[in-house]
Nucleic acid binder design. Structure first.
Length: 491
RNA sequence: CGGGGUAUAGCGUAGUCCGGCUAUCGCGCCUGCUUUGGGAGCAGGAGGUCGCAGGUUCAAAUCCUGCUACCCCGACCA
């Protein structure tokens, strides 16, 4: 069916790249490691952004915007933070170019050197907390609940479209609270918002948990995370929400007077998801025929393809299609009628399958006579014939069914790919031959976690919030452990 | 940064070892006609500083030297 398309089992990485390319989502740019997000890919991001933005606002947050550049000195205010990001920062050293008459090119003007270098933000904690210092004086100023939609730059050595790029789009929430308790609740709330979004809109099941100390965000006291499992058995961190304690408040000297007139440092959180979610979306559902999109995020939910032999016939079909388009739009369904004559129907069928459009309607002369339409769902590729009467209701139900089916399929897959391991050999065997999440006991030390990573490339993806206490022995050291944690190889 | 590799039309490529005629083929693109229920067919056409700079030679995509860019494996990836 799909020509020249790599199958998942042949080469999973190549399959992923093929999908990104053939679905016209993004491409590599002239700047190493930076991608161009093309209109179709960007419209998926817009849909994600719109849903998340609404969720953030419903939980009391407001949007703001902070500078792209951060004075170099800010990075070093919080020791662990600079340690975490220093090795991947882009640095601005000059502010002017000049023409070089000899080479007819532009060169950096050596006289335009900045007093203090500027860092292109890898994340905005520092520049934001520098502002918060001026915004927060009293307990009445708290909580401060801000989000920003922005781009950030992390100079990654190896990049992959959407999954890891040198520049990416994301949102970062930064909140300030009067008490530790409140800040922890905020971190958990936002982790839950993320889980809600990823499960109910992206149709990707996630594990909610906390990171081990070793995997924590640089400068965080606790990192809450949602972890998803991809079709090749590797884990993907889909979103994180950090409880930052008073670390940044102390680094940027952000204090407030409480009701008892006592000066206190504020408590902080930060949380973010990025265009990496598009990578997760692709890998979670797509198949050997191309992209598969959950209806709730698909830029085009329904495509209608006419089949005709003459202009007169096309006119008749277009009239019937026009009515269907109007009915579907009435229900808030995004629909495209593709009567472009330069491509034949077969070409269009393949094209929209690559692009993951959830439902395809086909109307030809036969349907015109019988008042029917051929309906094909992208997730199962099942075809059926439906009466045009009441089509909007039926399509709407079908979109719901597809959304549910994608989630169920992904959830079943994750269940099959979640395995308990009680011995080291078992643990290694699962990682090498099966993949997926491995539930195993761990003695709780960073040394052991690092040793396991070195031996197997597997890391602790999460300590699940719903994990049940269970006595056991650490998979590597045999020391006592009170619950299982989730190991996996990851992106 | 260490190891390996590649550079020829928008994309993918042949030719390079062993120098020689108008640089090969496919996809895509343009024009026309016929087509249209699963990636159409035919005919015609456009498109190249063979990565850059220098050298050897009657002659360089091909040989030599230098440079640049990119890819893969490692290192790195809170």
């Amino acid at each position: 069916m799909a020509k020249n398309f790599t199958k998942r089992e042949e080469n999973y990485s190549q399959w992923y790249n093929d999908i990104v390319q053939r679905a016209d989502l993004a491409e590599n740019s002239s700047v190493r490691g930076c991608m161009v997000i093309k209109p179709y890919g960007y419209s998926i991001w817009e849909n994600m952004r719109d849903v998340l933005d609404k969720m953030f606002k419903e939980t009391g947050h407001s949007n703001a915007y902070f500078p792209l550049f951060i004075p170099k000195s800010f990075l070093s205010r919080e020791a662990e933070h600079v340690e975490g990001f220093a090795k991947e920062c882009a640095v601005v050293t000059h502010y002017r170019l000049k023409a070089d008459p000899e080479t007819h090119t532009v060169v950096v003007d050596p006289e335009a050197k900045l007093e203090e270098e500027l860092i292109v933000r890898p994340t905005s904690e520092t520049i934001i907390w520098d502002s918060y210092k001026n915004w927060i004086h009293s307990y009445r100023d708290l909580p401060l609940l801000i989000n920003q939609w922005a781009n950030v730059v992390r100079w990654e050595m190896r990049t992959r479209l959407f999954l890891r790029t040198a520049e990416f789009l994301w949102q970062e929430g930064h909140t300030a609270h009067a008490t530790s308790q409140e800040a922890i609740e905020e971190s958990e709330r936002m982790m839950n918002v993320y889980a809600d979004f990823v499960e109910n809109y992206m149709a990707v099941p996630v594990i909610k948990g906390v990171k081990s100390p070793n995997e924590r965000f640089a400068g965080a006291v606790e990192t809450f995370c949602i972890e998803a499992l991809m079709q090749d058995g590797k884990a993907l961190q889909a979103g994180t929400s950090h409880f930052l304690g008073q670390n940044f408040a102390k680094a940027f000297d952000v204090k407030f007077l409480d009701k008892d007139n006592t000066l206190q440092y504020v408590w902080a959180t930060s949380w973010g998801v990025s265009t990496r979610l598009i990578g997760a979306l692709i890998m979670a559902h797509s198949d050997d025929n191309g992209l598969v999109l959950p209806p709730k995020l698909a830029p085009i939910q329904v495509v209608i393809v006419p089949i005709y032999k003459s202009p007169e016939q096309l006119a008749q079909i277009s009239e019937a299609a026009g009515k269907i388009v109007a009915e579907l739009k009435e229900k808030g369904i995004s629909v495209k009628y593709d009567d472009d004559d330069s491509n034949r129907p077969g070409w269009k069928f393949n094209e929209y399958e690559f692009k993951g459009v959830p439902v395809r309607l086909v109307i030809g002369p036969r349907d015109l006579e019988e008042g029917t339409v051929e309906v094909t769902r992208r997730d199962t590729l099942e075809k059926s014939t439906m009466q045009i009467a009441g089509i909007a209701e039926k399509v709407n139900n079908l979109l719901d069914a597809i959304q549910k089916n994608l989630f169920t399929k992904a959830l079943n897959y994750r269940s099959e790919m979640t395995t308990k391991a009680d011995t080291w050999d078992e643990f290694c065997d699962i990682l090498d031959n099966k993949g997926g999440f491995v539930l195993a006991h761990w003695d709780g030390t960073t040394e052991t976690e690092v040793a396991i990573k070195e031996k197997t490339k597997a890391t602790i993806r999460a300590i699940a919030l719903d994990s049940v206490p269970e006595e056991g022995k650490c998979i590597l050291t045999g020391k006592p452990s009170h619950k299982r944690v989730i190991f996996a190889r990851s992106y």
